[in-house]
Amino acid sequence: MAPIIKLENLSKKYGSFYAVNHLNLEINKGEIFGLLGPNGAGKSTTILMMLGLTEPHSGQATVCGFNATTHPIEVKKRVGYLPDTLGFYDNSTGLENLVYIAMLNRQDTGSATQKAKELLTRVGLKNDMHKKLAAYSRGMKQRLGLAEVLIKNPEIIILDEPTLGIDPNGVREFLQLIRKLSKEEQLTVLLSSHNLHQVQQVCDQVGLFVDGKLIAKGDIPTLSKELFLEEPFITEVKLYENHTENQSTIKQLLLEVEHVITVRIQPERIFIYCKNDVTSAIAKKLINSNFNIKSLYLREFGLDDIYQRYFEKKNENDKQTIQTIV
C-alpha cells in the first residue's frame, strides 16, 4: 500500500538556516503519527509544506497522491488542518464559525448547518453552539477545532500542538476523542507536540524532530526500548570530595551496585544510569566508603533528556566507529 503522506528530501531554508533539513518521512493510511520535538524544531514548517502553504526549498511533499506544492487545492480538499493558534472569529458563534468553513469547502448552507450541528454534538459542544466564541474556553475551542477539521470530510487531519494550554484532564479527554474519531472515520492523524507523555497516549508512530531533522522514528515500544528501558533511571550525585581525582575509585565502587549500568563523572556532578531505582543503595555504598554526599537526587525524564541521551549515544557511536576505522 502506498503511503498517504510521503516526504522526500524536503528542505526549507530561511537565509542560511535550515528550518527543515532533507526530511524523508512516510506515513501510512489510518495511522496516528506524532511529530515530536522542541520549539523551533521545524514541525510547523513541515506541516505548512505538506499543505502547500510554504514552498519547499528542495524536495517534494506528496499528500494523498498530489504534489502539495503544485496542487495545493487538491491537497487542502482532503486535509483538515488545525493551527496551534486556533484563530476562530470571536464575534461569531461556534456554529457560524463551522458553517463558514464548511461553505468554503463548497457545501451548501442547509447541509453545512446540519453537518455542523451533528459534529458539535459529537465533540460535546451541543449546548454551547450558539454562544459567541469570545465566551469559549481554550478546551472548548480545541474541540470546536476538531469539529472544524472534520467538517470537510478529510482523509487526513493535521493538528498542530493540539494539547497546548489545556489542563491535564482536558488533554486526556481530547486525545481520547481524537483516537475514537480517527478509528471511527478511518482517518490518518498527524499531530505535533513537544510533550512526549501526551503523544505516547494516542500515537501509533512517533517521529523525533531536532533542528529540522528527523532523528528517530518508530512505534512507542521500539522508541522506548531504544531511549528509555535500558537505563530508565538517572541518579545525580554531588560529593564534597573532588570527583576527578577519585574518578576510577568512584566508578569502580558505583558499578559494584546492583542495576547500575553506566557511570559518568563530571567535575561538578556524577550521573549514574541504572535499571531500577537504587538511589538508597548508591548512597549507602558511597557513605560506607567514607565519601561525603553534598546532594543526591533521582532525575525524571523530560523530552530534553531524551534528546540529550540520543545525542550522547550518537556521539559514542561515532567515536566507536572512528576508533574502529583507526
Binding site: 499543505l51 487545492i73 487542502k76 488542518y81 486556533l86 484563530g87 476562530f88 472569529y89 468554503l104
Partner: peptide, 14 residues
C-alpha cells in the same frame, strides 16, 4: 494576528 488567516488559507480556496 488572530490566527484566522492561516485557518482560512488552509481551506481549498485560492
Amino acid at each position: 494576528n488572530k490566527g484566522s488567516l492561516v485557518r482560512v488559507v488552509s481551506q481549498p480556496i485560492y
